[in-house]
Design a protein around this nucleic acid. Structure first.
Length: 434
RNA sequence: GUGGCCUUAGCUCAACCGGCAGAGCAUCGGAUUGUGGCUCCGAAGGUUACGGGUUCAAGCCCCGUAGGCCACCCCA
């Protein structure tokens, strides 16, 4: 067993999986461009306070999942923390760079690593990757719909099947406190029926009682007062408007009155995307919501905003589960092999020239006999083999078509052009196996 | 952070009741001179995750640690 291995909760992305991730990132980048959400990057770590205030000090993410880092040799301990999510950092950047002076809303996106120190499981890592999209400075429900539609579009474009949005409104400062009071009153009167953990929640975070998975809670939750029955007029209007927009877009969603989020900053719109059929695995592949109070909380002017984060590692899992094992195996156009096993210099020289011409060419650098070199070239799916032999002295090589089994003498000076032509016609021909 | 299951070659897995640690695939080499994916032959690859304990004897039984997975917590 290896003495060193990747730290718990982290993993190496080997070429095949890295390629699958790159496809997701390319889709995200393309959508970000077409929807007008240019990409930005923020640091992987921030002052701890940014997350404590931004995400919420009493949330699980901050209380027990924050990766705290100390700089230098002592001192300044735990002043910073690795980002557990992207929104707080983006909002910090929005404020720091005076983006409130730009045309509102400011649309931004970010692809990158997030860190949470929790117990790993399939689809749950301590270092994971998210695509995050934010629209800061627009209060209307239309932008909520745009954001949701963008997320849906991503799942659809990359080929995740069976994604469903769970949607709710959790009110705002005007109506939520009164609702929470009502909820505490309801569960308080039935405290004797609550399991121990839930009894504790009644005091620490009563909203969370609603999404308890304890079977003993099901009946109580079903009969509990619903936030959507107690929204203020403004929140009601916003929520109705959002649903109208979604319907106009032809998007389906499931109203989930018990959906609350684990982050403090959400107001009004909250949603989570679930993919069906992730047996036992983490089936939440994305989530988001409106955070109208966050900019102000981090020191900016009162600014409405909404965004979502989408778990790329989980999308990868969902795609693997769906059986879409389209490996992105890339085969070289040609492999340069040699009749003289020890003459690696000539093979490397020929390959270098072809690469300079833009071709994907591998040189066989092992000093083994020609038949082994050809075997390797054929097995990795190369279209051509270029055989360097005695003819090289007169400026020629054998160009062997490994699929057709034919070969002919070609001047080295013409090689690049010949390969380009063949590759072009090959590309337009029947798809290569792989 | 709580509870449970698991860990044998690079990968997938064998190994009877505690009795010499194996196979397939992959890798490398060979099968008469410069021609390929197949076939045949061979080699290499192991402190049985790590550290203790019980025993004449431990991959197998016991304890601890690490890692993976599952269910919670919570979420991406």
């Amino acid at each position: 067993m290896p003495r060193y291995q990747a730290p718990r909760g982290t993993r190496d992305l080997l070429p095949e999986e890295r390629a699958r991730l790159s496809r997701l990132e390319a889709t995200a980048a393309d959508l970000a461009r077409r929807y007008g959400y240019p990409q930005i990057d923020t640091p992987l770590f921030e002052q701890t306070e940014v997350f404590e205030r931004g995400v919420g000090a009493v949330t699980d993410i901050v209380e027990k999942e924050l990766f705290r880092v100390s700089g230098g040799s002592g001192g300044e301990e735990e002043r910073w923390a690795l980002r557990p999510e992207a929104t707080a950092g983006i909002v910090r950047a929005y404020i720091q760079h005076g983006m409130q002076t730009l045309a509102q809303p400011v649309r931004l996106s970010l692809v990158g690593e997030m860190f949470r120190y929790d117990r790993p499981q399939a689809g749950r890592y301590r270092q994971f990757r998210q695509w995050d999209v934010e629209a800061i400075g627009d209060a209307g429900p239309a932008i909520d719909a745009e954001i949701l539609e963008l997320a849906y579009r991503f799942y659809s474009d990359v080929g995740v099947m069976g994604v469903e949005a769970h949607l709710n409104s959790i009110g705002d400062r005007a109506c939520r406190p009164a609702y929470v009071e009502r909820l505490v009153d309801y569960f308080g009167k039935r405290e004797s029926q609550l399991p121990g953990l839930e009894r504790h929640r009644l005091r620490s975070n009563p909203l969370r009682l609603l999404d308890s998975k304890d079977p003993a809670m099901a009946g109580l939750i079903a009969a509990a007062p619903r936030i959507t029955d107690h929204l203020c007029d403004a929140c009601r209007e916003h929520f109705d408007g959002l649903q109208a927009h979604l319907s106009a877009l032809g998007l389906t969603f499931r109203l989930e009155p018990t959906l609350v989020r684990g982050l403090d900053y959400y107001t009004r719109t909250v949603f989570e995307f679930y993919v069906e059929g992730q047996h036992g695995q983490q089936d939440a592949v994305g989530s988001g919501g409106r955070y109208d109070g966050l900019v102000e909380l981090l020191g900016g002017r009162p600014t409405p905003a909404i965004g979502f984060a989408l778990g790329l590692d989980r999308v990868l899992l969902a795609l693997a589960d769906a059986g879409s094992t389209s490996t992105d195996a890339r085969h070289p156009t040609a492999v340069v092999v040699g009749a003289n096993p020890s003459d690696t210099a000539t093979r490397l020289t020929v390959a270098t020239q072809l690469r300079a011409a833009g071709l994907f060419v591998r040189a066989e650098l092992a000093s083994r006999k020609l038949s082994r070199q050809l075997e390797g070239a054929a097995r990795e799916g190369s279209h051509f083999a270029i055989i360097v032999g005695d003819e090289f002295e007169s400026g020629q090589v054998q160009l062997k078509d490994l699929q057709a089994g034919t070969q002919r003498l070609v001047n080295v000076a013409d090689l690049a052009r010949e390969l380009e032509r063949a590759e072009g016609s090959h590309r337009h021909g029947p798809a290569a196996g792989g």
